[in-house]
């Protein structure tokens, strides 16, 4: 991007500096911070009898979680699926590095495909929302949550 792009401003106004609004998209990184698939597999086997490769990353699952947790002991997560309510069986949630990676399972029956709660995340790792459909699909959204020792303001 041209960092010396000036706005043609009308008389009296000070020219401004224009920045592209794809700031964050330019920051595409490699894998998620703290990823630990081997540990995650334990939880997946335990609850679903499935493995990580059986999960399909999907735009239909929306996971809202903080990028940096206020406290690892209290991380708000909100999960919503853009699917008809009667197609969704359950919502599962995992964190890669927890000793027990399963955070919760909720079975929905007649409510909208939405669930919000607060979870414990042991250390910086991805949180995974897994939406289980009635026809057996496992749709996933992931986001890394930083749990920091805290430094300074």
């Amino acid at each position: 991007m041209d960092r010396r792009t000036f706005l043609k401003a009308s008389a009296g106004a000070v020219a401004g500096t224009v920045l592209a609004n794809q700031l964050t998209s330019a920051l595409a990184q490699g894998g998620l911070e703290g990823e630990d698939i081997a540990n995650l597999e334990k939880g997946l086997q335990q609850v679903l009898g499935k493995s990580f490769k059986d999960l399909t990353p999907s735009q239909q699952v929306k996971l809202v979680a903080p990028t940096i947790a206020e406290s690892g002991a209290n991380v708000p997560v909100e999960i919503e699926a853009s699917l008809p309510a009667d197609q969704v069986k359950a919502i599962h949630c995992f964190s890669d590095k927890n000793a027990n990676p399963l955070l919760f399972t909720v079975v929905l029956n007649g409510v909208l495909p939405y669930y919000a709660t607060r979870v414990r995340v042991a250390e910086t790792a991805p949180v995974r929302a897994v939406v289980e459909t009635k026809d057996g699909r496992l749709l996933m959204a992931s986001q890394s949550v930083r749990v920091t020792v805290g430094g300074c303001g």
């Binding site: 964050t24 920051l27 911070e33 990028t67 940096i68 890394s144 930083r146 920091t148 430094g151 300074c152």
Partner: peptide
């Protein structure tokens, strides 16, 4: 950990503050 908070390329993962 402090460096990751300070120098993360994604502002959403920067906690703010300079390096200890």
């Amino acid at each position: 950990d402090v460096a990751a908070n300070t120098f993360n390329p994604d502002p959403f993962y920067q906690q703010g503050g300079d390096m200890s």
